[in-house]
Design a binder for these strands. Structure first.
Length: 287
DNA sequence: ACACAGGGTCAGC
DNA sequence: GCTGACCCTGTG
């Protein structure tokens, strides 16, 4: 019999967690559940009534891995309560994205994933990232007839061949991920040291990597390092910030970022994720 | 059909 | 600092 672990579904809505553009290593099943692979762990996440059921994971797997992955130590009820006091638009976004959580994912995987994300579309990003795991990673397990693979280390990815790169269909980004994987594998950039850096210092440090600019760096810091004061400014955040917080059109991402931190404070990155999801799902500012 | 945008970044000025 | 080009592909 397959192992399972069950916990309360308060502040935990799988589709709002997985379908908000922070994670790409999952499949939605026919019953609405999500099968997710992270590091060398695999499980299926299903919401039934007031419960979340993890299949393929037991209490020990939860305590050792998934609890941290889902950032279960963070109190999202309190967070939403604080956000509601700050601003009515943010309150609307938190209600819309009820149960959204910002995950703690692998830093190297985030680096490669968000380099690929630049000037790209979410379905294509998902395809490319999963193909990298399939080509260069190891088999983690199987669920519902589908095989799941771990994301490769920098050492492994740095040995990808030209032919394999072709298969990824990531266009001009192939030289970015190759050079970045090499810089990390050969220790020119130390990913561990980033944990101890202030967010702005870390952003600058990450921007040394080919294909990493300020926005991608913020995504890496928010989704991979748990730095909640990283505030990625993309097209959607630009739209939503202009809609609510600027009287005249603001295009400068640096100033939008500053405004976000000024309004939303030390957890601005979490606010950003609600706003991003809200703006994109409602196609805010389109025509 | 075919232009357009997509979780931006880079090189060149 | 600003501008244009950039591999692809899903969408209208």
């Amino acid at each position: 019999m397959e192992k399972t672990y069950t916990f309360g579904a308060k502040d935990f809505t799988p589709e709002h967690i997985f379908e908000n553009g922070q994670a790409f290593r999952w499949e939605k099943e026919e019953d609405g559940s999500f099968t997710v692979v992270a590091k060398n762990h695999l499980c299926n996440v299903k919401k039934t009534g007031n419960d979340i059921i993890l299949s393929g994971a037991d209490k020990n797997d939860y305590e050792e891995f998934w609890k941290s992955y889902f950032n279960m130590n963070r109190d999202y009820s309190k967070l939403k309560n604080d956000f509601r006091k700050i601003d009515i638009n943010l309150e609307k976004a938190t209600i819309f994205g009820e149960g959204l959580r910002v995950l703690k994912q692998d830093p190297f995987e985030m680096i490669i994933t968000f380099i690929i994300s630049a000037n790209n579309q979410i379905p294509r990003i998902k395809k490319s990232v999963n193909l990298i795991a399939e080509l260069m990673g190891d088999k983690v397990g199987e669920f519902n007839g589908k095989i799941y693979y771990s994301f490769p280390t920098a050492e492994k990815l740095s040995k990808i061949t030209k032919e394999q790169l072709e298969l990824l269909r990531i266009g001009y980004r192939d030289e970015y991920i190759l050079k970045t994987a090499k810089d990390i594998a050969e220790s020119r950039i130390d990913l561990e040291s980033i944990y101890d850096m202030e967010t702005m210092e870390a952003q600058k440090y990450l921007c040394q990597l080919m294909g990493v600019g300020p926005k991608v760096a913020d995504c890496i810091l928010l989704f991979g390092y748990g730095k909640t004061d990283a505030f990625p400014v993309d097209t959607w955040v630009k739209k939503v910030m202009n809609e609510y917080y600027f009287s005249e059109e603001m295009t400068n991402p640096k100033k939008i970022r500053l405004k976000g931190l000024e309004i939303f404070g030390e957890d601005a990155g979490l606010a950003q994720q609600y706003l991003f999801y809200y703006a994109r799902e409602n196609k805010l500012g389109n025509k």
